[in-house]
Design a protein around this nucleic acid. Structure first.
Lengths: 174, 174
DNA sequence: GGACTTTAGTTAGTGTTCTAACTAATAATT
DNA sequence: AATTATTAGTTAGAACACTAACTAAAGTCC
């Protein structure tokens, strides 16, 4: 358990209780596996979408706008699960790419609605099949039941963490 | 399936095949769930480690050095799963914080070995229990069998993606 | 043994995300 | 009605990760 990749020992680890020393190996940590998975997913998707001028950052916001066009910037932030400064940058980039527009609200001059351009909307037909493809490749070799289980377990731990973070500090990760 | 959070319809989605339109909803995409999971995990861990002066970026490198102290910078990159410019920055920060040292190789003047300081090594006893705790909180409510399944499934999809990315472009994500 | 290739590390520049601190507009309170 | 508080959005500055292009050292190959 405390033997590293190339056979050396990490003697310090052995001083710790077993339940803890397990996490000396990244492969045993959910966090590490999530990180590698997310990075792989993101890289694969971006390779497909970037020829169409869409980066992985823009992608997440586009998807939300396809579901519900014209939210305020705040609403968009909450739904995508990002902080507002992130949304500002992302929307700037969508506007710059001609995929969305900022439309000042008429009844509340603080608010701005984000609306897709025809180009932005039309990309759904091209891009959505790409996520489907990446999901398929990522889950290759798993049964439908296993995939369902994976989704359920991931939702469960995400729920746990959202609760945990909400409890302690402020209001991150909706 | 194509009804958004607040009850509006997203009519365009309905033009697509069902297997694809499923992914219009982020909650059905493995990629989205991995991203949220990773972010939650990272935030929770950083809240615990930052009082000890360790950021989530440094953390990953520290853990690898605890397993195997004194690798070259290249070796460290590969084992942590990051590109070399990232490692340069991370090692700079570890050195600056007094947690590690750069030690020029004697038999090959291109190489540099990264070695923990006593301080860097001593943090293991403090920090490793924190990951254990975060893992526990994240997986609360799941049985041991479910956790084992989750790890297995995550390793599986990570393997798929590593293979996929290796095949197509260059050499990302080890 | 001098020209080419590979390897190790760095620098430069970009994208994504965050927190903290700000401006401006609206709502609430006395 | 004037002050105070809240809400929406922005800017500034940082961390983390990437690709592309570079320097320097070591290895290969006529």
């Amino acid at each position: 358990m405390t033997v590293s990749v190339d056979g050396h020992f990490a003697p310090e680890v052995q001083a710790l209780p077993l339940e803890i020393s397990v996490y000396a190996q990244p492969e045993n940590s959910v966090g590490y596996l999530l990180r590698m998975g997310f990075r792989g997913f993101s890289t694969m998707l971006e390779r497909k979408t970037s020829p169409h001028g869409v980066s992985s950052g823009q992608w997440r916001f586009l998807r939300q706008l396809w579901i519900d066009d014209g939210p305020t910037q705040r609403e968009l932030s909450v739904r995508v699960g990002m902080r507002e400064p992130t949304t500002v940058v992302a929307v700037n980039s969508l506007v710059k790419s001609g995929l969305a527009l900022r439309e000042p609200s008429v009844e509340d001059r603080r608010k701005v609605h984000i609306r897709l351009t025809p180009l932005g909307r039309s990309l759904q037909a091209t891009l959505l099949p790409m996520v489907a493809d990446v999901n398929d490749r990522a889950t290759k070799g798993l049964t439908k039941a296993e995939i369902a289980t994976l989704l359920r377990l991931l939702r469960h731990i995400n729920g746990n963490m959202a609760q945990e973070l909400e409890q302690i500090g402020g209001d991150t990760v909706p």
